[in-house]
């Protein structure tokens, strides 16, 4: 805004087009790019640069603490193809995402339909039920760590009390791969339901009550009305939320880090925890390769997401 005095003081700029610089500054494209500089700089330095650096590292044998490292092409990736822990990691990641997302979607849909009705304290309940999504996952995972503890679990106590298991029996919720995966999935579903519920609830506001009434007059049952009136309206929101949730679940870290750290015996790793563990062994190149192996999966989901988002616009 200090443009005006500068121009007044400078006699070489003809008075007839006083706004050369000012006009340039007022042009929308100039301003737009100017506005994007601060944020762009942060993203460039702390996102684009590390991303490219990560690709580069994944092609080297870089380790922590040693300045020297060599370019080894795809050796890190080739190693992964024969690494049984990595293959199990890929399997776990897909199980984790493909098992939990449908449950989150269905239970979230149910919650949205329940909350969409009018009842007392609805605002209060709506806010309260969002808590699993708001609270730090590392912290809520601690609650699950205790719920799944082989000694202190209240679930075990309940089952004993009801006589479903023997008085001295223990359940090793996190002690075997199958049990641990199931426990992790349950905790993930718990955390993810509110996201689906709130997104779908917003979509339900757009469902036309007139159309519902018309369908009802034509003799459609509630379920038929749900299929032919409600579902088409919320279809895009459901798709978009599902894809978002897939991305977040595939790239999860903290829930598994807190509950199992990838154990027992490295059997419940997903990409994030396995890459973290590998970096702990100071093998930066290998760890970068593990993390980046997730990229193709995310890219596919991301492209799908972009298509639906644009359709929504």
């Amino acid at each position: 805004m200090s443009v005006v005095p500068v121009r007044a003081a400078n006699p070489t700029i003809p008075r007839r087009r006083p706004s050369g610089w000012a006009r340039f500054m007022e042009r929308e494209s100039t301003l737009a790019y100017l506005f994007m500089v601060p944020g762009g700089l942060v993203l460039l330095l702390f996102m684009a640069y590390p991303f490219l650096l990560g690709i580069y590292y994944s092609l080297t044998d870089k380790t922590v603490g040693f300045a020297d490292f060599e370019f080894i092409w795809f050796q890190n990736y080739r190693f992964l193809l024969e690494d049984t822990i990595f293959l199990r990691t890929v399997q776990n990641t897909f199980v984790y995402g493909l098992v939990t997302v449908p449950f989150k979607l269905l239970l979230g849909l149910g919650m949205a339909l329940a909350l969409n009705q009018t009842f007392r304290f609805s605002r209060f309940l709506r806010a309260g039920l969002l808590l699993p999504w708001i609270v730090p996952t590392a912290i809520s995972s601690l609650a699950f760590l205790m719920l799944f503890d082989s000694v202190s679990s209240p679930i075990t106590w309940l089952l004993r009390d009801w006589g479903l298991i023997g008085a001295a029996d223990r359940i090793n919720f996190l002690g075997s791969r199958a049990n641990a995966m199931a426990s992790i999935c349950l905790a993930n579903v718990w955390r993810g339901i509110p996201f689906f519920a709130v997104s779908i609830l917003a979509g339900l506001q757009a469902v036309s009550p007139d159309l519902h009434e018309a369908a009802a007059l034509d003799g459609a049952s509630p379920f038929q009305r749900f299929l032919s009136v409600t579902l088409p309206t919320i279809r895009n929101i459901v798709l978009i939320s599902t894809l978002f949730s897939l991305i977040w679940t595939f790239s999860d870290f903290q829930l598994i880090y807190v509950l199992t750290k990838g154990g027992p015996a490295s059997s419940t790793h997903i990409f994030g925890t396995y890459a973290y563990e590998t970096m702990g062994f100071s093998d930066v190149g290998q760890a970068a390769a593990i993390a980046l192996s997730l990229f193709p999966v995310l890219a596919v989901v991301g492209i799908l997401l972009l298509r639906y988002i644009r359709a929504e616009d």
């Binding site: 999860d252 870290f253 760890a287 972009l306 988002i309």
Partner: peptide, 27 residues
């Protein structure tokens, strides 16, 4: 280029910390 930058921002939103934390530690 306005629309393109919008897409870039959206794609940046999809990049999870899991993908970046290793090189980011070095940076």
């Amino acid at each position: 280029g306005g629309n393109l930058w919008g897409v870039v921002i959206f794609l940046a939103y999809l990049v999870p910390p899991t993908l970046l934390f290793i090189p980011l530690a070095q940076v």
